[in-house]
Design a protein around this nucleic acid. Structure first.
Length: 472
RNA sequence: GUGGCCAUGGUAUAAUGGUUAUUACUUCGGUUUGUGGAACCGACAAUACGAGUUCAAUUCUCGUUGGCCACCCCA
């Protein structure tokens, strides 16, 4: 059918030049596999597209990812967190019960579907609930407390894609279960802060406390009461929020709403004495370990499970941009119980790595990025079949001694290989030709000065190590 | 989910209701075959998809898909 259509189209273009006609015909599929849309301008088969909001991580970005992973691993382990890897697929109920019905994440953004056996499952939209589940399932309440996890992996939310927002994204996060102590909160904030700081980012920690669920409930009543009296001044969105999730009115960006909020009751004033002093302790500990922070009494988090301390970390400059929240987290003392475990306090944070990388890339363009990519410092050029064989062997030796050597066996001309060496910006090239193979030597060429020296193949490794040592 | 802007080779771009779709970078090959950074030459390679208007659409219109931005929300 499609074939017919195409012919029709070609027939229509009867005044096309012969050349163009031939080209078009070449692009016509010889046969159709029965799939729809198999026609493409590029060849006879339509290339399946990248799904919306998804992203391929290409080798040119790998370096960032590697750095982030190392940084996360080192930091988390230094603070005594143990790696946990929970499945990407979970029971849908896990998130409905923890994040709460009525939150956008659960209501609109979950990739949930029916399993082959009829069970309701979904792609995890976050990892905290999974950690809590694992904590319960593996009876970790009988481990020495706190139990500290760190995780690193993909999360899924069917949101509308935007800069710094993908449907599959990667989070690094830490969770700490079993201890209700301000030190825990402070430590988590410190880890998140240092992670971003280690990457050379200047960030601000925004901090608030929601108190106990009772505090929150009392405050909520008070706040809703107040907002109702000012209802007519609020924007449309906030009117909806008033019914659905009044706390969110607090961080509305609308100016008139902000004005209304100036007079609104402050959550801090509604905290119980113990919550208040708990929060003060968190601040004191942060001062103690020199983590700067900003109090933000309008900061509430979108997920239901938070209690007491909540925080977000933003990039210091350009705090506009809705996507500038790099990290979010807080305490969730009721979570484990909500999921059917023994009452267990907990706290954690997670960092959106795509956002971090987008900042790092911007800095790289500006030349202010702290992270620098390491290139191979040696290139191996070979000439002729015998040299190629010998080169393979020598490369093994060099690889085992940890020297990163680039090569391009695909190119046969020395000229081509030298061009490649130049593009890779290596410091030295090794040249091995017919002559060298016979003499058992190799040429080491300093790419900057062009000076060459002939070295015995057996001494190649040592010679290179020596040359590379001082500058590295 | 709502609104705005956008869609030309791998990347970045030019142009046009009509004949060979511009240019640069990248990639590949070459300028006497064992030496890179320069110069020159050549090759590969694009109008997102579908429909409509038209003698003729890459250009105009609509739809789809995708991207960016803002909102919502969140990391």
């Amino acid at each position: 059918m499609i074939l017919k259509k195409n012919n029709k189209k070609i027939a229509k273009k009867k005044n096309l030049s012969e050349k163009k006609l031939v080209k078009k015909e070449k692009n016509t599929p010889a046969k159709n596999d029965g799939e729809e849309n198999t026609i493409s301008t590029k060849g006879s088969v339509r290339t399946p597209a990248l799904l919306r909001g998804m992203k391929d991580l290409l080798p040119k970005e790998e370096f960032f990812w590697k750095t982030l992973h190392h940084t996360a691993e080192n930091l988390a382990e230094a603070y005594g967190f143990g790696l946990i890897n929970t499945p990407i697929l979970e029971e849908t109920a896990l998130f409905v019960r923890s994040l709460g019905r009525g939150t956008d994440v659960v209501d609109k953004e979950m990739y949930s579907f029916e399993d082959l056996d009829g069970g309701k499952i979904c792609l995890r939209p976050e990892a905290t609930a999974s950690c809590a589940r694992a904590f319960i399932v593996h009876g970790m309440q009988s481990l020495p407390q706190p139990v500290k996890f760190w995780y690193y992996g993909p999360m899924f939310r069917h949101d509308r894609p935007q800069a710094g927002r993908y449907r599959q994204f990667t989070q690094f996060g830490c969770e700490s279960f079993g201890v209700h102590d301000p030190v825990v909160d402070a430590e988590l904030i410190a880890v998140a802060y240092h992670f971003l700081e280690d990457l050379g980012l200047k960030v601000n920690v925004h901090l608030n406390s929601l108190g106990t669920p009772e505090d929150r409930q009392n405050y909520l009543i008070e706040l809703t009461g107040y907002l109702r009296t000012k209802r007519s001044y609020l924007c449309e969105d906030c009117k909806k929020r008033l019914v659905k999730n009044p706390l969110r009115v607090l961080d509305c960006k609308n100016l008139e709403c902000k004005e209304v909020l100036n007079e609104a009751p402050q959550i801090i004033e509604w905290l119980s004495e113990s919550s208040k002093s708990y929060f003060m302790k968190v601040l004191e500990y942060l001062d103690e370990i020199n983590v700067p922070y900003v109090l933000q009494n309008t900061l509430v988090r979108g997920l239901d499970y938070y209690t007491d301390t909540v925080f977000e970390i933003y990039l210091e400059e350009d705090s506009e941009g809705a996507q500038s929240a790099l990290c979010g987290g807080g305490r969730y003392n009721g979570l484990v119980e909500q999921l059917g475990g023994r009452p267990t306090p907990g706290a954690g944070f997670s960092i959106g790595l795509e956002r971090v990388i987008s900042v790092l890339r911007k800095q790289t363009d500006e030349g202010t990025c702290k992270i620098k990519e390491v290139f191979p410092s040696v290139f191996f050029a070979q000439l002729g079949e015998q040299a190629r064989r010998r080169a393979l062997r020598l490369l093994e030796v060099l690889r085992k001694s940890g020297i990163v050597v680039a090569h391009s066996f695909g190119k046969s001309s020395l000229k081509g290989q030298m061009e490649m060496a130049d593009k890779l910006k290596v410091r030295y090239s090794l040249i091995l030709g017919q002559k060298e193979v016979q003499d058992g030597t190799a040429i080491i060429r300093d790419m900057e000065s062009g000076i060459q020296e002939i070295v015995d193949q057996k001494k190649l490794k040592n010679a290179l190590e020596k040359k590379l040592q001082p500058k590295v």
